[in-house]
Computed example of a mutant assay.
Amino acid sequence: MREPAGPAVVVPGSSANLGPGFDVLAMAVGVHVRMGLGSDEGELSDRHPARVAFLAAGGRGDVWFESDIPSGRGLGFSGAAIVAGTIMGMIAREGVGMLDVDAFIERHGDEILDRAATIEGHPDNVAASLHGGVIAVADRTVIDLPLGFAARLAVWVPSSSTSTAKSRATLGTTVDRVDAVFNLGRALLLAEGLRSGDRRLLRLGVDDRLHQDARLAVAPRSKAAMDAFEECGAVAVWLSGSGPSVAALTTVDESAAVVEWVRVAMGDHDGRVMELAIDASGARQAT
């Protein structure tokens, strides 16, 4: 891990489209990108999402970039990279010092979100990466959803990747009213379950009729991982982002057992199971 010699940020990944909250609900997760001003041995291409965002925000000059977020797996790599690039572009444009990064992010949060969401095309994952914790977002307005118990995430991450654009293309362009009502109800149950820790509400609250079934239909291993998490008693299970990763909410006490159960059930030949914290801090100064 590089020790910053100038302004730099660390930004968490995310698990977005949380259950019924398509493009609305997301949580920040404990894998990260780091980006700062200064030279790098491997220059970012102009197509890299961090570089695109950096230039769009007015940044000029050399930057370095590191990531431990698996790309194309539904854990918010592009969103985190875009948030990092946006922040660093604005910092380079304004000449912000390395000790003033956190205050700058707090003052300019609305602009950061607006720029990042415009590039990403939807706001939920970039909002979670920027704010941390569990969030809901609509019309670029973000609220924090309280989490009322000590939680961890278990995530099955396959070896294969998926394209968000291609995955979205499998979804219909209209929604049946019955399905819309179903998802509205489940989203409310999920919010209350997160606040209270009520396992029944959490399990019901991640049900979805807008996107998960269509995506799982072309991802049988993701469906198998979801079934494995449910069979071992994980609190709540959902397709992370556009997939193919599958995330499960667990308690701190149960997390290790859930990870081991799913690891054995799925095997090691085409994926791995990760235990992750929920990142409550969001984008911040890298140290």
Score class of each variant (00 low, 15 high):
residue 1 M to Q: 14
residue 4 P to A: 13
residue 5 A to C: 03
residue 5 A to P: 00
residue 5 A to L: 11
residue 6 G to I: 00
residue 6 G to C: 10
residue 7 P to L: 08
residue 8 A to Y: 07
residue 9 V to H: 12
residue 9 V to Q: 05
residue 12 P to V: 09
residue 12 P to I: 04
residue 13 G to L: 10
residue 14 S to I: 07
residue 16 A to N: 13
residue 19 G to D: 03
residue 21 G to L: 04
residue 25 L to N: 01
residue 27 M to Y: 04
residue 30 G to I: 13
residue 33 V to G: 10
residue 34 R to M: 10
residue 35 M to K: 04
residue 36 G to C: 08
residue 39 S to Q: 08
residue 40 D to W: 12
residue 42 G to W: 06
residue 45 S to H: 07
residue 47 R to D: 15
residue 48 H to K: 08
residue 48 H to D: 11
residue 51 R to N: 04
residue 53 A to N: 08
residue 54 F to D: 02
residue 57 A to Q: 02
residue 60 R to C: 09
residue 63 V to A: 07
residue 64 W to P: 11
residue 68 D to Q: 07
residue 70 P to Y: 03
residue 71 S to V: 14
residue 74 G to K: 03
residue 75 L to T: 02
residue 80 A to T: 09
residue 81 A to K: 10
residue 85 G to L: 06
residue 86 T to C: 06
residue 89 G to P: 07
residue 90 M to Y: 07
residue 90 M to G: 14
residue 94 E to P: 01
residue 96 V to E: 09
residue 96 V to T: 05
residue 96 V to C: 11
residue 97 G to N: 12
residue 99 L to V: 02
residue 101 V to G: 10
residue 103 A to C: 10
residue 103 A to H: 09
residue 109 G to T: 13
residue 111 E to A: 14
residue 117 A to C: 03
residue 119 I to R: 13
residue 121 G to D: 05
residue 122 H to I: 10
residue 124 D to M: 03
residue 126 V to Y: 09
residue 128 A to E: 02
residue 132 G to M: 14
residue 133 G to A: 06
residue 137 V to G: 01
residue 137 V to F: 02
residue 138 A to N: 12
residue 138 A to H: 14
residue 140 R to Y: 04
residue 147 L to D: 05
residue 147 L to P: 05
residue 152 R to M: 08
residue 157 V to S: 05
residue 159 S to L: 05
residue 162 T to R: 13
residue 165 A to T: 14
residue 165 A to H: 02
residue 167 S to E: 11
residue 168 R to A: 11
residue 170 T to H: 14
residue 170 T to K: 14
residue 170 T to A: 13
residue 170 T to D: 03
residue 171 L to K: 01
residue 173 T to Y: 04
residue 191 A to I: 04
residue 196 S to D: 04
residue 198 D to W: 00
residue 198 D to T: 08
residue 199 R to A: 09
residue 200 R to T: 13
residue 203 R to T: 00
residue 204 L to G: 06
residue 205 G to K: 09
residue 205 G to M: 03
residue 213 D to K: 10
residue 215 R to L: 09
residue 217 A to M: 02
residue 217 A to V: 01
residue 217 A to S: 14
residue 221 R to Y: 05
residue 221 R to M: 11
residue 224 A to D: 03
residue 227 D to G: 01
residue 228 A to Y: 06
residue 228 A to W: 07
residue 237 V to K: 09
residue 240 S to V: 03
residue 241 G to K: 10
residue 242 S to R: 01
residue 247 A to T: 12
residue 248 A to S: 04
residue 248 A to N: 12
residue 250 T to Y: 00
residue 260 E to Q: 13
residue 261 W to K: 15
residue 263 R to D: 13
residue 264 V to W: 01
residue 264 V to H: 13
residue 266 M to P: 10
residue 266 M to E: 03
residue 268 D to K: 15
residue 268 D to E: 15
residue 269 H to V: 15
residue 269 H to F: 02
residue 271 G to R: 03
residue 271 G to Y: 07
residue 272 R to V: 12
residue 273 V to K: 07
residue 274 M to S: 07
residue 275 E to K: 14
residue 275 E to R: 15
residue 275 E to V: 11
residue 276 L to Q: 12
residue 280 A to H: 15
residue 280 A to N: 14
residue 280 A to S: 15
residue 280 A to E: 15
residue 281 S to V: 15
residue 281 S to N: 15
residue 281 S to Y: 10
residue 284 R to K: 09
residue 286 A to T: 01
